[in-house]
């Protein structure tokens, strides 16, 4: 084994193991995809709310990753993430309250039964 081969192999190992921007973006995309899948397919309203949280957090990861790797001087991404967390907390409180109200009224939390918006 000559040195150059070892060297390039080490580079590949390094690229594969060192944590960089793309790792975070891929993680974010995976989380977002999972959340979206759940949003579109889950029958339970609470599960859908959890999926929405998942998507919001995927966005948070993206923001922080960009902030850290693309514009490390500023804190805009972090600030955004803090805001989103705050808003998400409020939103989930309202969402859960709605779901509880619906469950009390209709005795169901299945979204299939919640189609009263149609004509």
């Amino acid at each position: 084994m000559n040195a150059s081969l070892v060297n390039s192999f080490a580079n590949i190992i390094h690229a594969a193991t060192a944590i960089g921007l793309y790792h975070f973006l891929i993680l974010g995309a995976l989380l977002f995809g999972l959340g979206l899948y759940g949003l579109l397919t889950k029958r339970n309203a609470i599960a859908v709310l959890m999926c929405i949280e998942l998507m919001l957090n995927a966005v948070n990861i993206n923001l922080i990753a960009f902030s850290r790797f693309v514009a490390p001087a500023g804190l805009a991404g972090q600030v955004f993430a803090v805001f989103i967390i705050t808003v998400a907390a409020a939103e989930i409180a309202v969402g859960l309250a709605l779901v509880f109200a619906i469950v009390r009224d209709r005795l169901t939390s299945s979204l299939d039964d919640l189609d009263w918006l149609k004509w």
Binding site: L39, L40, D115, W119
Partner: peptide
């Protein structure tokens, strides 16, 4: 109007 299912999803 039949396009409107009322299903949020």
């Amino acid at each position: 109007r039949f396009a409107q299912t009322g299903q949020l999803q």
